[in-house]
């Protein structure tokens, strides 16, 4: 014997004996990093109140997750970052002057009803942040559509009288907002939806990391633009306005609630785009991204089922 040990307590298991280092929390925190530009723009544009709203939603989302898991005597997994994402995403869809207490309520609902009621992470059919938002829109329609008129960045006086979002302007008065305002974010709107630029930055980062599939944002945005064009509306305006960008890059792409097949993702994205267009053009309500995504979330199990890929060697075996 040459000094080394040769007796072993052996660990026996089935292959593979190697695993990648990627983890759930790693993915979740990457998504959070991707939201940083939108968060920063929102603080810049709307000031500290937007920070407080985001903090409140995030903290209460995480706390609700932990409390429900404790109550149900499940393992507490608040460190995985998923509840934090839900809280933050919900906050990003709220108007800047939204009452804090209602925001907290929405956040609790998002986690308790939208996620934990189904069994927690991975089991929820709907995007929890959108469940929270849907609850708020239905229960508090006035607060959810009271927009701070955009006046200037932090430091400048903020005019708190009711403004209107670009989609409102277009819908009610036929007034178009110019592209650069839409792109950079100096418009009225929800905390995280105003700057297409910030969302794109985060979205591109997630695409680069491989945590979202390009098929979803492309099919959502592409179908909205194309359909808007076909009915004689300005496609670029529709892309940049409202919650479409945030929805296409951060909500529809939610792994848990989107299809797992590639073909399924095309169908998913195109259907969402179609519904957004339908709601925006023909609906009584200026914005329809949230309902579009929630509706198509519901069809995901069906989509997955009918879009299973052709397996290698399948066709020839039949021939």
């Amino acid at each position: 014997m040459m000094g080394g040990k040769t007796a072993v307590d052996t660990i026996v298991s089935s292959s593979p004996h190697l695993q990648s280092k990627e983890t759930i929390s790693g993915i979740m925190y990457t998504v959070l990093i991707a939201l940083i530009p939108a968060v920063l723009v929102s603080i810049y544009l709307f000031g500290m109140k937007s920070l407080y709203l985001m903090l409140a939603c995030s903290i209460f989302a995480v706390a609700t997750e932990g409390a429900v898991q404790k109550l149900r005597q499940k393992e507490v997994t608040i460190n995985d970052g998923s509840a934090l994402i839900t809280g933050l995403l919900l906050a990003l869809t709220l108007p800047p002057d939204f009452p804090m207490i209602l925001a907290i309520l929405g956040s609790v609902i998002a986690i308790a009803i939208g996620k934990q009621a189904y069994g927690g992470l991975g089991h929820n059919p709907f995007n929890p942040a959108l469940v929270g938002r849907a609850f708020l829109v239905i229960s508090f329609p006035v607060e959810m559509t009271t927009w701070t008129k955009w006046v200037g960045p932090v430091g400048a006086a903020i005019d708190t009288q009711t403004g209107a979002t670009p989609l409102n302007w277009m819908k009610t008065e036929g007034i178009m907002t110019d592209y650069s305002a839409l792109f950079w974010g100096n418009i009225s709107g929800s905390l995280g939806e105003v700057s297409a630029f910030a969302i794109l930055l985060g979205g591109l980062y997630l695409l680069y990391k491989g945590y979202i599939d390009w098929r979803i944002p492309l099919s959502v945005l592409g179908s909205v633009a194309l359909l808007a064009f076909l009915v004689g509306e300005d496609p670029l305006f529709h892309l940049l306005a409202g919650g479409l960008m945030l929805g296409a890059f951060f909500m529809a792409t939610d792994m848990v609630t989107s299809p797992i097949t590639k073909l399924g993702r095309w169908i998913f994205g195109l259907t969402i785009g179609f519904l957004v267009w339908l709601f925006r053009i023909y609906g009584g309500y200026p914005e329809g991204v949230m309902f579009a995504i929630l509706l198509v979330n519901m069809a995901v199990p069906l989509i997955d089922r009918y879009t299973a890929p052709r397996i290698l060697g399948e066709v020839k075996a039949r021939g």
Partner: peptide, 22 residues
């Protein structure tokens, strides 16, 4: 030269498809 530690996994073949041994 022997093993570094007395406990561990012995795999016949590679780590992706190999079989652990007692």
């Amino acid at each position: 030269g022997g093993l570094n530690e007395e406990s561990g996994k012995i795999i016949m073949g590679g780590p992706m498809m190999g079989k652990t041994q007692h």
